[in-house]
Amino acid sequence: MPRRGFTLIELLVVIAIIGVLIALLLPAVQAAREAARRAQCTNNMKQIGLASHNYLDTQGCFPPGAISRSNGDGWSTNFMPWTVLILPQIEGNNAYAAMNINMGVGALDRGQAFTAYLAVPSSFICPSDGDNDNGTRPWAGTFSGGYPNPDGQSPAWDPPLNPFTGQVLQVVPITNYAISWGDNYAGGSLMGGLPWETPPTVTTLPPGTPRIGHHGYWGTHRGLPGGFTLNAGRLRGFGDYSTMQIATIASVRDGTSNTIFVGEVLPAADANNNFWTSTGCASGTTVPLGWDANSVPASDPACNGAWQGASTPLGCRYAASAKGFVSRHPGGANFLFADGSVRFLKESINHVTYNALGSRNGGEVVSADQY
C-alpha cells in the first residue's frame, strides 16, 4: 500500500504560497504598527498641549522656551526648559518637586534630583523614533548632547556627576518634541546663513518675494549689525533657548489654529537636544520640514563637534540646519498648534506656507487647504 504524503514539488509550492502571503501581509502589519505609534505620538502632543494651556491659565503666558540667559560673562539662571516647566501640569509633580528649581541643572548631582533626571516622562518620547533609546542617549562621542556649565566658566559643557558612583554621567536625557521659535533664522548669522533663508543682510526684497527668516537667530534678541547684536531681533514663535521672551494669547494675532507651537524632532539628528536643559529646547521652520541632518556621518571630521561652523556640512547633526522639525513618520511630522490641536504636516508643504505657520504675529493669511 503506497504511503500518503506531499511530493517535493507540492511542498515547494506550499512554501512559495506562504512566502507570498507573508510578503503581502508584512507591509500591512508594519503599517498598522506605525499607525498605532503615530496615534501614541499624537496623544503625547495633545497631552503637552493641555499642559501648556493649563500653564497659560495659571501664569498668563505660554511656557517660555527656557529659564536661562546668555550674557557677556557666560550663562546665568537655572537652564530649565519649557519641558520641565509644564511637568506639574502633565502629572510630573514628583519629578518637578525633586528638582531644585532655584539651582536648576547645578543640582543634578544630588541623589533625588539625579534619579528624577534620568526618568524622562514617556509623554515626551515618540515611539516611532527607534533611535531615541527610550529617553537617553550617549553623552560622550559623536552622538553626544550638550550640558551648559552652571557656573558659566570653561569648559562650556559640563555633564553632571553620578552621585552614586562619583563618575561623570555618560548619557543625556532627550526629547522628541521641541517648542517652535517660528520663522526666525536657524542659520542667519550662524554658518553664514542657510541656503533656504533670505540672506540676513538683505533688508529690501522685490515686491511679491517672501522673506524666509527673520532676526534674531534661534528666536533670540540678536540680529544686525553683525548678526549677534542684542535687541536687534525679536521672537516670532513661542520660545528660544536663552533670552526668556514670552508669548501671551493676545500676541498670537495670526490665530492659534494657524500657528505652530511644538513640533517633532529627532535627538539622533540634533546634537543640541536635552530634556532638562535649555540648549535643545527649540527649533524653527526656515529649515525644510523633514531635512536629513544625518546624511553626513557624525564621526566625519568635518562634522564631529563642528558646532554651527561656516564649513559644517548641511547634513551634519552639529549644523544649524539640524534645528528643524523632522520625524520617523513616513511623509511628514506631527505638530501641536497653539489652539491645542495636533495636525500632521506633509514634507511637501510649501516652504512659504510652512514659515507662515511658524510666525504667531507675522500678518500672513493662511487657509486650511494650503496645508
Rank of each mutant, 00 (worst) to 15 (best):
I246C: 15
P199R: 09
T259D: 02
I260N: 04
L161I: 08
L235K: 12
Y185H: 01
T248P: 13
P150Y: 07
R211E: 02
T229D: 10
G255P: 02
T175P: 05
G188D: 08
I174S: 01
L230P: 14
P150T: 02
G213L: 15
A178P: 04
P200L: 12
G237F: 07
P206M: 03
I179T: 04
M244K: 04
T229I: 11
V262S: 00
G187Q: 13
G208M: 00
T203L: 08
N149E: 14
G192T: 11
L205V: 03
G187W: 14
Y217M: 15
V172Y: 11
Y185P: 01
W181A: 08
P163V: 03
N162H: 05
Y241E: 10
L194F: 12
N149I: 11
L230W: 07
N184A: 00
T201S: 08
T175S: 15
G208F: 00
L194G: 05
Q153M: 05
S180Q: 10
P200D: 11
G216W: 03
S189R: 14
T256F: 09
G263I: 10
L235N: 05
P163W: 09
G152M: 00
S257V: 03
R222K: 12
P159A: 07
E197P: 05
Q170M: 15
P210R: 00
P195R: 12
V168C: 02
P225N: 04
Y217K: 13
H221P: 14
T198H: 03
Y217V: 15
L161D: 11
T256G: 09
M191K: 08
D254E: 13
V202I: 09
Y217G: 06
D254A: 08
G233N: 07
I260W: 11
T229F: 15
L230V: 12
L224S: 05
A156N: 12
P160I: 06
V262Y: 03
D183R: 09
G263E: 13
L161P: 04
N149D: 08
G263D: 08
E264S: 12
G216E: 01
Y177M: 00
R211M: 06
I179L: 14
Y217F: 14
L266T: 07
P206V: 00
Y185S: 01
W196D: 08
A156D: 15
G213T: 09
T165P: 06
G152Y: 01
P206F: 01
V171F: 15
F261L: 15
G227R: 01
P225R: 08
L205Y: 06
D151E: 11
G226K: 12
N258E: 12
I174H: 09
T259E: 07
G226N: 08
G219N: 04
T165K: 13
F228G: 11
H214Y: 15
E264K: 10
G223K: 13
S154I: 05
E197G: 03
N231D: 07
L194H: 09
P160H: 03
G152R: 01
D151P: 11
G227Q: 01
N149H: 14
L205R: 06
D158V: 06
L235M: 10
G208I: 00
L224K: 03
N149R: 14
P195K: 07
D254M: 12
T198N: 04
V168H: 07
A178Q: 11
T220H: 03
I260Q: 07
H221C: 14
G152W: 02
T243I: 02
Q170F: 15
F164W: 13
G263N: 06
F261Y: 12
W196P: 02
P159G: 06
M191G: 04
N258S: 14
